[in-house]
Design a protein around this nucleic acid. Structure first.
Lengths: 211, 211
DNA sequence: TATATTTCGTATCGTTCACTATGAATTATT
DNA sequence: AATAATTCATAGTGAACGATACGAAATATA
């Protein structure tokens, strides 16, 4: 736990609210909602499914998170986490290729976790859907695009450094990296184990040799 | 009664049925259902959406296709087509690498068609869902696995021919090919145009150089 | 203790879901 | 023309959907 979060927690507990206290840990039930969406998707996970998974009644869910869409967006942000962390780890890698290889390995691990659903929430939860859920799909797409932009910038750094040939197409390589990660999610959903996904990550990384 | 009509009746191949004739072309409305599922997914496309897209009332839909699941499965089979066609075109390619490159190019074209929804039906329509739709997800997964098996066998051919090194991992390369195609579907959904997807296809193919 | 405030569980709300009962309409056969 | 067979459009079915109204319960403050 970071220093900031500790400070925040103390500040929160010191300023007590009047009225009946919450009977559940908000972060805890949000985590369970995230897992439910991760497993079953946005539109295809009902409020009934969510209340069952979270151990919270519907009125409590709405009081704490607003509505289904806001709950999903918050769960997605929790899943995607802080992108500065990804950006920093990629910046620390010696080369863009190493950075992307490491990202692919991380995806292989994440998509085959023993305590989490298979695949990637960003790939699975809102691949398609009704017009009503367009805003959610756009938000998920924006999250993917954000990751792509980080990859893009990291590749650009290596080009300016001369570590990659000047005719390198950073957009195409970033697209390919995103495609491989999202495709690995499909493989995980189809039952591919960690070993298979890691092998795919290595194979995709090997491709960079002649680019 | 002529001899011909008697023969046809007994052979169950009579062209004219008794009773009121169908007011729609079955293949035509199936195509429209396929496009609806392609665009909006299996569970997230309602019967009401389907009847509107197909121009057919609900009772007609059920009379012609059974139920929603059977309609989807038939639409998916229409989408995926006959796999012997894919197998043959891959067999005719000079190398497995050429075959897969051509498959990736074909996917790039298919996922960015001007008269069809973006992306791949197999990737988008049932990425996740409720327990009720498990059978549909399994069917879609089986379709993907079928394509993977075709790639797998094509690679194996080149290994036995000596066109690929004997330590080549056909499973990993097949997984990677599937991952790239399914990932390209996500890119298409996010707005990537044909040029970008074709560039990804070429970049993924280039990877084979050092494997 | 009395009051204000907030969350609790119960019991719904109106709408949409996948699906169908019913009888009129349309055809081939007799 | 009469009959049998099939599809048509209308109008629903019960169940599940996302979301809430409401009063009891639990806390802080006066």
């Amino acid at each position: 736990m970071t220093l900031v979060s500790v400070t925040m927690k103390h500040a929160q507990t010191s300023r007590r609210k009047t009225g009946r206290p919450l009977s559940f840990d908000r972060e805890e039930v949000l985590e369970k909602a995230m897992l439910a969406f991760w497993d079953s998707g946005y539109e295809t996970t009902s409020i009934s499914d969510l209340t069952a998974a979270m151990g919270v009644t519907a009125p409590s869910l709405y009081a704490a998170f607003g509505n289904k869409q806001e709950l999903f967006l918050e769960a997605m942000r929790r899943y995607a986490g802080d992108h500065t962390a990804l950006e920093q780890s990629m910046a620390e890698a010696p080369t863009a290729r190493d950075a992307i290889t490491e990202m692919l390995r991380g995806a292989a691990m994440l998509y085959t976790g023993e305590t989490t659903p298979p695949g990637c929430l960003l790939a699975s939860a809102a691949a398609t859907g009704s017009p009503d859920a367009l805003a959610v799909r756009d938000a998920v797409a924006a999250e993917r695009r954000s990751v792509r932009d980080i990859i893009l910038r990291r590749i650009a750094v290596d080009i300016t450094k001369g570590l990659l040939p000047p005719d390198t197409q950073p957009e195409t390589l970033a697209d390919l990296a995103i495609a491989v990660t999202q495709g690995m999610s499909v493989l995980a959903r189809d039952g591919a184990d960690r070993e298979r996904l890691l092998a795919v990550a290595e194979a995709a990384s090997a491709s960079w040799g002649n680019l």
